[in-house]
Simulated assay, not measured.
Amino acid sequence: MAADVAEARREDAGIVVAHSDFGGSSISGVTFSVAGMPPLVVLNSTQPADRMRFTLGHELGHIVMHKFPTPDMENEADQFTSNFLLPTEDVKPYFAGRKVDLPLLAALKPEWRVSMASLVFAAKRAGAINEGQAQYLWKQFSIHKIRLREPPELDFAPEVPASWPARKKSRDGVSTSRSYCPEGRPLADGPRGA
């Protein structure tokens, strides 16, 4: 899927991804850019993997599209991410001829590795639901108290960075399992102790 390729493309492009609990803050992620250095994206390690994936795509959207702040840049980054993780033509067949409801969204979440909420936006973009149906689904999210936190039993493990550990060798030539910054210093442990 496009989403699986996304992590490899970000890593190959020289974007460094790290994780932090942000001291308990509700910040989902942030990008640091310094001239002459690859961008550093820091993700909140306490968030579910679907949220981390969306945040990483959102930050990638800023890196790709926004050299300077614009009034609509947050919405643009969200749209970029939605289309990047759930390309309309790829996701459309998953909704074709099916009732788009909470059970379908729950079934598609682990397959696409995105939130159920992201799937609602994708279903609308693909023409599988209209605005009224989307509003009904949002009400169902609220009734079932999953608007802010989707069912934990649908969570999946976050991706683990692949490029830096594969490139960094220990003194005896064995690849390490930690992520490293360009200077060779270890970054903070991955998400949830990974």
Results as ranks from 00 to 15, higher is better:
Ala35His: 09
Gly61Asp: 05
Ser20Asp: 15
Gly29Tyr: 12
Leu43Phe: 11
Val64Asn: 04
Glu153Lys: 14
Ile27Arg: 13
Leu60His: 10
Leu148Cys: 00
His58Arg: 13
Glu111Leu: 14
Lys92Tyr: 02
Trp164Asp: 00
Ser175Glu: 12
Asn83Cys: 02
Ser118Cys: 02
Pro165Gln: 06
His144Gln: 15
Phe141Glu: 01
Ser28Gln: 13
Met116Gln: 14
Ala123Arg: 09
Val30Tyr: 04
Met1Ala: 13
Val114Cys: 09
Arg171Val: 15
Ser179Gly: 15
Leu86Asp: 06
Phe54Gly: 01
Met65Ser: 06
Val16Pro: 00
Asp12Ala: 11
Ala107Leu: 15
Ala77Lys: 08
His19Trp: 11
Glu183Tyr: 08
Ser33His: 03
Gly190Asn: 06
Asp172Arg: 13
Gln135Cys: 01
Ala117Gly: 07
Pro191Ala: 15
Asp4Ala: 03
Pro151Gly: 05
Pro48Arg: 12
Asn83Pro: 00
Gly193His: 11
Asp21Ile: 01
Ser177Lys: 12
Pro158Gln: 08
Ile146Met: 15
Pro71Gln: 04
Ser179Pro: 11
Ser115Tyr: 07
Leu154Val: 03
Met73Thr: 05
Val30Arg: 11
His58Phe: 12
His66Ser: 03
Ala107Tyr: 15
His58Gly: 04
Met73Ile: 07
Glu111Ala: 04
Ala126Trp: 01
Lys99Val: 14
Arg167Gln: 14
Pro48His: 09
Val64Thr: 14
Arg167Val: 00
Arg185Lys: 13
Pro158Asp: 08
Phe156Cys: 03
Arg51His: 10
Ile63Gln: 07
Ile143Phe: 04
Glu76His: 13
Ser20Cys: 08
Phe84Met: 12
Lys168Tyr: 11
Val16Ser: 00
Phe22Thr: 04
Leu40His: 05
Leu105Val: 10
Pro191Arg: 14
Ala2Cys: 00
Leu60Thr: 09
Gly173Trp: 12
Ala122Phe: 02
Pro191Gln: 10
Leu40Asp: 01
Leu187Gln: 14
Thr176Glu: 12
Asp50Lys: 13
Thr55Tyr: 06
Ser20Trp: 12
Arg149Ala: 10
Asp101Leu: 13
Ala35Trp: 10
Thr70Cys: 03
Leu137Ala: 04
Tyr180His: 15
Gly190Tyr: 04
Glu183Arg: 06
Leu137Cys: 07
Ala122Cys: 09
Leu104Trp: 09
Pro152Lys: 15
Glu111Tyr: 10
Asp12Gly: 02
Phe156Ile: 04
Ala49Asn: 11
Leu104Ser: 04
Ala166Ser: 14
Gly36Met: 13
Ala3Thr: 06
Pro186Glu: 11
Ser179Thr: 15
Leu102Pro: 01
Ala6Cys: 01
Thr81Tyr: 05
Pro87Ser: 08
Pro110Asp: 09
Pro39Arg: 08
Leu119Trp: 04
Cys181Gln: 12
Ser45Asn: 03
Val120Asn: 01
Arg51Asp: 08
Cys181Ala: 09
Ala6His: 03
Ser20Glu: 11
Asp78Ser: 08
Glu74Ile: 15
Arg147Asn: 05
Val160Cys: 00
Ser82Trp: 10
Arg9Ser: 03
Lys124Glu: 12
Phe84Ala: 03
Gly184Lys: 13
Arg171Asp: 14
